[in-house]
Simulated assay, not measured.
Amino acid sequence: MTGSLAHLTLAFGLLGNVVSFMVFLAPIPTFYKVYKKKSTEGFQSAPYVVGLFSAMLWIYYALLKTNVMLLITINAVGCFIETLYICFFLFYAPKKARMESLRLIVLLIVVGFGLIVVLTQVLASGATRAVIVGWICLIFSLCVFVAPMGVVRQVIKTKSVEYMPILLSVALTLSAVMWFFYGLLLGDFNIAIPNVLGFTFGILQMILYFVYKNKKPVTNEKISTFEAKISEMEEQKIPELKDHKIIDIVKPGSLKHSDILPVVAKSNKNGYDVAVEPQVPFNVPNHIIEVTA
């Protein structure tokens, strides 16, 4: 590699480190929302678990190579930050989401990464080991870029970008450009190829964000319709209350025993006769509501 090409590769590698660091910090607004709501409802842990797994794989791959030290630096930082995100998510997640996240962590981090390290160390050697791990890194790098796309379906369905981390989409797009040229200049297509797809997905997410950012969420429309129906039902009940008539009844103890006589009232406006039988004036309410038909 010539001097100018080496300098250009180093420049893209350093820029890739800077932008990737921004990628790792991009979810901070998302976790601030989680902190304010004290709940992870609406958010998923999969992108952060897959991100941690991918960072660990790239560190393993870089250790098998000799000229990709910049991969070690940024992915070591990534492992630390992604671990913090996952711990934060588990702390605020509901029980069901927490258990799903723990299962994913065991599946990818413990079982998946452990098997990859053990099998490649036992069954492969030298350059072959690096090639195998490189292909695995390529596949899971695609998963890192695809993972945030799970939000796309939710955005289209709800017409809301509340759960789409736009800063993450922008940072991923820029990072994909930097690492593509870094891998291309190194001649390492395991680094270059997945970033082509990463750039494409990043652009798609940003387009969706600008399409739906001013749309009225579908959930809000449903709530408004429901509230309107409730108000209409309450208005229909108001005329019925007008047909209720409050009749004053004498208070207990105000009548003498001699005053309690059988009384038959005249027919009311609806043609009904109301008869009041003699009774002992104990526990008589002050008022009674007569419901007319």
Results as ranks from 00 to 15, higher is better:
3 G>R: 03
7 H>Y: 13
8 L>C: 10
10 L>C: 03
10 L>I: 02
12 F>Q: 06
15 L>V: 11
17 N>H: 02
24 F>W: 09
31 F>T: 04
33 K>P: 00
36 K>Q: 13
40 T>M: 05
43 F>C: 02
43 F>D: 01
46 A>N: 04
48 Y>V: 02
53 F>V: 11
55 A>G: 07
59 I>F: 01
60 Y>P: 09
63 L>H: 08
63 L>R: 06
68 V>A: 11
69 M>D: 04
70 L>Q: 08
71 L>F: 10
73 T>M: 06
75 N>P: 02
81 I>L: 14
85 Y>L: 04
91 F>N: 05
92 Y>A: 03
105 I>H: 04
105 I>P: 04
107 L>V: 08
109 I>E: 14
110 V>C: 14
112 G>Y: 10
114 G>R: 10
115 L>W: 11
122 V>N: 08
123 L>N: 03
123 L>R: 04
129 R>D: 02
131 V>T: 15
133 V>S: 06
134 G>R: 11
135 W>M: 08
137 C>Y: 07
137 C>T: 10
141 S>Y: 09
144 V>G: 08
145 F>H: 13
153 R>N: 13
154 Q>H: 08
154 Q>G: 06
154 Q>W: 04
161 V>R: 02
171 A>F: 12
172 L>M: 15
174 L>Y: 11
176 A>W: 01
178 M>E: 14
183 G>D: 09
188 D>S: 03
197 L>K: 00
202 G>S: 12
204 L>C: 09
208 L>Y: 13
209 Y>I: 05
212 Y>F: 15
214 N>I: 08
217 P>K: 04
218 V>Y: 09
219 T>R: 14
229 K>N: 09
234 E>D: 11
235 E>M: 10
235 E>D: 14
235 E>Y: 06
236 Q>R: 12
236 Q>F: 05
241 L>G: 07
249 I>S: 01
253 G>L: 00
254 S>P: 00
257 H>M: 07
257 H>K: 13
260 I>A: 01
265 A>L: 15
271 G>S: 03
274 V>M: 14
276 V>G: 00
279 Q>N: 11
281 P>F: 00
283 N>Q: 14
290 E>G: 08
291 V>T: 12
292 T>W: 10
